[in-house]
Write a protein that binds this DNA or RNA. Sequence first.
DNA 1: ATCGCGGTTGACGTTAACGTAAACGTCAAC
DNA 2: GTTGACGTTTACGTTAACGTCAACCGCGAT
Lengths: 147, 147
Amino acid sequence: MPADKPISYSIKELACDFGVTPRTLRHYEDQGLISPERQGQNRIYSQEDRVRLAWILRGKRVGFSLSEIGEMLDLYNVGDGRETQRAVTVDRCRERIRALEAQRDDINATIEELQEFCELIANLIRDKDRGLWVRRDTGQPLGKYQP
Amino acid sequence: MPADKPISYSIKELACDFGVTPRTLRHYEDQGLISPERQGQNRIYSQEDRVRLAWILRGKRVGFSLSEIGEMLDLYNVGDGRETQRAVTVDRCRERIRALEAQRDDINATIEELQEFCELIANLIRDKDRGLWVRRDTGQPLGKYQP
DNA sequence: ATCGCGGTTGACGTTAACGTAAACGTCAAC
DNA sequence: GTTGACGTTTACGTTAACGTCAACCGCGAT
């Protein structure tokens, strides 16, 4: 096994690898979400930083704020703390999971409604091409050129 | 069938029914998301407004911006427009659905990771109570009082 | 008449998550 | 040596989604 995997990245590399700007990475660092090493002034990002960044961005897509994401990342670091700390960690973790499941339910409901509506409109178009339109009051067909 | 269902609500009623402030409802109106009737100056919210509000709030929970929610609500109104309009509506609708499905995948992935981590910590606690802790280097048990 | 309660319209304040610009350092290339 | 690409810090600007506050109106109760 070739053990040469400690690749590192400049800020710009990492940034456009993930489709964000350097400014964004600095901002995340200001918020304590990532702490890359330094070579003098310059930031050097490691593989672990990549992983953290992926977490952060997924957290954002999921709708979390940066501070919430920070807390969740902290959870992983507290894993080696005191016993009571760990219990708290587990609790917070489960809360988050519940919130996420609720959010997923919301999303599913939204998807279903959109799908229903979408099919309704799609059928409307199809039926129109077949001249199947009817007046809502009388139920009589409208013919092909009536809106 | 009793046909007396056109109940209406004041701004404060509707607001605290949904756990928001009156200011929020006015803001949504400013953004064109709801347009309640008026009795003189005062806003009168109908059942339909309730439904729209529920949509809006779920949209927010799902992570949409107010303008995105506005577009989605517009979709429903465009349902009776011209043929080309309807085709566009269906397209946008399907885009939204795809985006939502992607977001759901993100959520599921997050949930899984959190669950894994959660169980890991939980097991750590349980094993500690059984004195099953080991040194990572030697694999030797640590005894009951070693962190 | 004057409370208090609920409603209204501005209009300015606030927070989050960056964008943007200024002013400067560094190092390789021309 | 200066130009250009990349980096740094500092600091002000921006947008979204409201919060907050002032000033006002209408109305039933006291």
